[in-house]
């Protein structure tokens, strides 16, 4: 009997998950449909400001530290082979292909994703969303859509800024401090970095992560239990789910885009 109950519990959980996924997909599709509209453009600007501009400080600070630390580590290993000029290539490849998109998306999930969830969750628990519906304003269009689009626009731009700052951070450490030859540093980079294969595919990753993070954040806020505890749980779930999904998707994307090891 106990075994049957466990199986039933498992089935219920699975059904709940699938139902949630269905609700999330419907919400996402309806919300993306909700734009573009002239009057909504100021809402979009406000959200790009909240999600993108306000994330700049944390992105720039982290990028600089990561670039500097990578340069130090590459240098200590490469100098043993007298190949310290390869710091530039290593740095650019690692940042453009993996660390740039992934770290930016993780920071974005912590900084902006959690804020989206908390904001929408509080709107729901204070019944602002239902009052909007009563007034004939579609909350998907007014609240959810601008946040989704703002995230999709902001994260790739943040990733590009992250990459540039990190490469410069690494360049400052290795050229000014460790004494790597600047010519070898930059020309090694330009020799091996390819526009589509390294930069373009990194940007594709950033776009995918943007869709994942904003989707999870908005859905968790929209679907939260309208209590203080519910909002707390939803915010935590946003950060945890986005982080796990980012890392898992990164592996899948790397495998599909760079899987041809020839």
């Amino acid at each position: 009997m106990l075994a049957l109950q466990i199986i039933r519990l498992l089935g219920r959980r699975a059904l709940e998950r699938i139902e949630g996924l269905g609700r999330a997909t419907i919400m996402w599709a309806l919300a993306l449909w909700g734009l573009p509209n002239r009057t909504d453009i100021s809402l979009l600007f406000q959200q790009i400001y909240n999600l993108g501009v306000l994330s700049l400080v944390i992105i720039i600070l982290s990028a600089f530290s990561i670039g500097a630390v990578l340069a130090l580590q590459f240098y200590t290993q490469l100098v043993r082979f007298g190949a310290q000029e390869a710091v530039g290539v290593g740095l650019a490849m690692v940042l453009l292909r993996e660390l740039g998109p992934v770290v930016t998306a993780l920071l974005f999930a912590g900084r902006a994703g959690s804020a989206i969830t908390a904001e929408i969750g509080l709107m729901k628990s204070t019944e602002q969303l239902s009052s909007m519906e009563m007034m004939g304003v579609d909350p998907l269009r007014r609240i959810v859509a601008p946040r989704l689009w703002a995230g999709i626009i902001s994260l790739p731009l943040l990733t590009a800024i992250f990459n540039v700052v990190a490469i410069y951070g690494g360049a400052i450490v290795s050229i000014e401090w460790l004494g790597v030859d600047p010519g070898g540093f930059w020309s090694g980079m330009t020799d091996f970095v390819q526009l589509w294969n390294d930069i373009g595919k990194g940007m594709v990753k950033a776009l995918v992560f943007a869709i994942i993070v904003t989707w999870i954040a908005v859905y968790q806020g929209y679907d939260t239990l309208p209590t203080a505890e519910g909002i707390g749980l939803a915010t935590t779930r946003t950060v945890v789910h986005s982080s796990v999904m980012i890392l898992a998707m990164d592996f899948v994307l790397t495998l599909t885009m760079y899987g041809d090891f020839n």
Binding site: G52, L56, L96, P156, L157, I199
Partner: peptide
């Protein structure tokens, strides 16, 4: 600030394309 942010992002992409991938 949004305009500046978008501009910075696009410039960063351009920098990556020209300076890094050459």
């Amino acid at each position: 600030s949004v305009g500046g942010f978008v501009l910075a992002g696009v410039l960063a992409l351009l920098f990556l394309a020209v300076r890094v991938s050459g």
